[in-house]
Amino acid sequence: MSGYWAGILVILAINVIAAYSAWLPLAAGQVNLGTAGFMAVGAYAGAVLSGDYEWPVGAAIAAGAVASGLLALLVGSAVLRTRGLYLALATLAVNEVVRGILLNWDAVGGASGYPVIAHIELLPIAIAALCVFLVAAWLGASRFGMTLHAIEQDETMTGLFGVHVSRVQLAAFTIGGVMAGLAGALYAHHFSYIEAQYFTVLMSVTIVLSVVLGGVQTVWGPLVGAAFFTLLPELFRGASNWRYVLFAAGVIAIMALRPQGIVTRAALMRLRRAA
């Protein structure tokens, strides 16, 4: 495989993991606009552990994921009491606070960034993405996954059937946080250099948009969305500046015509019957 394609596949794999991290809360009707902030936590925690503390790379990456998950648990239990649009605002604030702290923290390089010595190639990253997909598919096929969709559609009714709505949402948000941390830690150990400026709210926004574009009803949606977003510039080579324009126009059109996204449950069932 050429280095060019390996590079694209690495980005695709990381985007896929990030997409699933945003998908879990989205499936339960919560927008996390702070995914990039959670990725930053995973990236820095993993990089510091493998660098300054000389942990093995695998353990450091796992610890990065756990650190981000713990932050999600903390933020989620504080903020999930207030639902709906407030969560979008709160996660957005978390993204900026995390970035602000990292920018001012001299021990991790502050504004000049932090070099990562340990390095991983495509294969472990691809395996991690596959595992995340399998976990998402597993959860999607479980009662937990079913409950997420029910909450997204009708929170009150779902609660009357005995579902502890806020606990399920917190679980989805926390697992999403673990996945985001994993994506960040993998990113750090492949690109060998991280800086806080990279993990912007705009990045969180594009992750959410790619998931919504793909569709939140099924486990395939985030995969399609992440692939669309990652591969779009390759289809329009030489016009890479247009990438975001086309992507945004695509999102607006999809949301206007078919707010459930590209992949819907009904479409999958039609495909299965046709096959």
């Binding site: 959410v208 948009l209 324009v245 945004a248 607006i252 949301m255």
Partner: peptide, 12 residues
Amino acid sequence: VSSLGFLILFEN
């Protein structure tokens, strides 16, 4: 979500 799409569209 649509309005986020417009944010990215206009800026880019």
